[in-house]
Nucleic acid binder design. Structure first.
Length: 205
DNA sequence: CGTTGGATTGGCT
DNA sequence: GCCAATCCAACGC
């Protein structure tokens, strides 16, 4: 089965695709043939003009997939040990992507727990590296075409309506944190915690 | 060429 | 709350 989201759907700007990915299903066929299915609840957008983006300084061997055609997977290694998944957006050569940060497990929970080495369902897919680990995704899947792959694809699911979507600043980066390019389903218990940010300075009297 | 730090997580204080 | 784990790109010398 292939995605019913057409290539053009992914060719839009990352800040459009990211909230539209909420509620969609990400499906994984593991090497043993079993199926895992999750429902996306948290995403972040990265565009090439953005200092926090891996594409900011141009294409490298690591980020090549990010500069490839839309609808492909960009997987990178973070802190030397964790993998994170992104969906490439925008036209080929542009260098934008949407980071998949958290999801609700729907199907194949035993397999995902085995991949994670932990069976707490709340933490199975909460966090970009946990999500990738639960689905058994590493850099060998970097560049996978999500519209044609037999092992990893997206299905339309049930998009989260706009009034159920919350935008906040992105997480875990040191620049561009003000840009409200992180989206999550309102009230989702499957998303990562939103950090408390420094409140505006109290007016001096 | 050496140093630094990151789109994170889990374990320990 | 703090910090190690550990790859690799960016940057300084």
């Amino acid at each position: 089965m292939t995605s019913s989201l057409p290539r053009a759907w992914f060719a839009r700007p990352a800040p459009e695709v990211a909230p539209d990915l909420l509620g969609r299903h990400l499906v994984r066929r593991l090497p043993d043939g079993s199926i895992c299915r999750v429902r996306l609840v948290e995403t972040e957008a990265y565009e090439p003009h953005d200092p926090a983006s891996h594409s900011f300084r141009g294409e490298t061997a690591r980020t090549a997939a990010m500069f490839g055609p839309p609808g492909h997977l960009y997987v990178y290694l973070i802190y030397g040990l964790h993998h994170c998944m992104n969906v490439v957006t925008g036209p080929a050569g542009h260098g934008a992507a949407v980071l998949l940060r958290a999801a609700e497990p729907l199907e194949g929970l035993p397999a995902m727990s085995a991949n994670r080495g932990s069976d707490d369902p709340r933490l199975l897919c909460r966090g970009p590296a946990r999500l990738a680990q639960a689905l058994g995704v590493d850099r060998t899947l970097d560049g996978t075409d999500l519209l044609r792959s037999e092992v990893l694809w997206l299905e339309t699911g049930e998009p989260v309506p706009g009034d159920r979507v919350i935008a906040t600043g992105r997480i875990g980066i040191s620049v561009g944190t003000q840009t409200p390019w992180r989206w999550m389903e309102a009230g989702s218990t499957w998303a990562t915690p939103t950090p408390i940010r420094d409140p505006p300075a109290a007016p001096r009297r």
